[in-house]
């Protein structure tokens, strides 16, 4: 039962991430939604799997997947956002500040 609740919360956060991907104005803000919501959503689903199966084979594998997901998604977001900036994609009109513009890259 607890496992089902935790998994439902995970799916809900994944949904928020997807809505953010559609609604936010530019690629930088979209990446924010995509990294945070989707990572915690997936971690929540994996935690649900761990609770459901306990410390058996599937549970331990879910536990191992959590830190892997954390590091890979943060590093991927960093690489994507930097690559996007260097490629020259403009930030949305709502942006108020850009300290990265004048830097030697």
């Amino acid at each position: 039962m607890i496992a089902l609740i935790v998994i439902s919360i995970g799916i809900l956060f994944n949904l928020f991430g997807c809505i953010g991907l559609l609604r936010l104005p530019d690629v930088y803000n979209r990446l924010q939604a995509a990294t945070k919501c989707v990572t915690l959503g997936c971690c929540s689903i994996l935690a649900g799997v761990l609770i459901h199966f306990g410390f058996t084979e599937a549970g331990i594998k879910a536990l191992v997947a959590v830190p892997l997901l954390f590091f890979s998604s943060t590093v991927a977001a960093h690489a994507l956002i930097r690559g996007t900036y260097l490629f020259g994609v403009k930030m949305s009109d709502k942006s108020v500040k850009d300290d990265y513009k004048d830097v030697e890259k």
């Binding site: 953010g20 936010l24 945070k36 919501c37 915690l40 930030m91 500040k97 300290d99």
Partner: peptide, 26 residues
């Protein structure tokens, strides 16, 4: 902090006015 981050982003995404003021800071 991570859980707070998710509620924060979920709130910004779902609210109709979308309160964002993005930028890059050093």
């Amino acid at each position: 902090a991570c859980i707070k981050a998710n509620f924060d982003v979920a709130f910004r995404v779902l609210s109709p006015a979308m309160p964002i003021k993005p930028g890059i800071v050093k």
